[in-house]
Design a protein around this nucleic acid. Structure first.
Length: 136
DNA sequence: GCCAACGTTGGC
DNA sequence: GCCAACGTTGGC
């Protein structure tokens, strides 16, 4: 399968991009939403993942990579929830803010804008590349 | 199966 | 701090 593109959200107070840089890799645990879980299960090794910091930062701040496909989330009380492993590839030179994303006609349809509460979402290759370009 | 109540997320 | 959006829960 060709490479797929994703975006994950995190409140930086809970887990920031800087934490991922410090950890070198992390288990992306804590997802408790069925739609987000479908996306986690669809991730493949090598897929690219934009890291969006919500609430305080409100910007895409880095690019990560899927290093392990879905496995049981040890932090879950009930079976069925899954995590993946992510590692950082590179920060964006300039964070791409939510304001910038909203201002881009080519990005008008992305789930980040349409489904504000979804924490794991797919991105079309063009949308992913556009955001990375804005951050370069 | 419907829907009101409630809890959480996340932008402003 | 407020509130809109929206997912979940539980009574009927």
């Amino acid at each position: 399968m060709t490479m797929q593109y994703w975006l994950v959200k995190s409140e930086p107070e809970a887990y920031a991009w800087s934490d991922l840089l410090g950890d070198r890799k992390t288990d992306w645990t804590g997802v408790r939403n069925y739609q987000a879980r479908i996306h986690l299960n669809a991730m493949r090794k090598g897929d690219r993942v934009l890291f969006y910091e919500s609430v305080t930062t409100k910007a895409v701040v880095g690019v990560a990579e899927v290093t392990k496909t879905a496995f049981p989330d040890k932090t879950a009380d009930e079976p069925g929830w899954v995590a993946v492993e992510l590692k950082p590839i590179a920060p964006l030179s300039r964070p791409v803010t939510l304001t910038q994303i909203k201002a881009e006609p080519a990005l008008a349809g992305i789930p980040l804008l349409r489904q504000s509460r979804l924490s794991v979402m797919p991105l079309e290759p063009a949308a992913f590349k556009r955001i990375v370009a804005l951050g370069g």
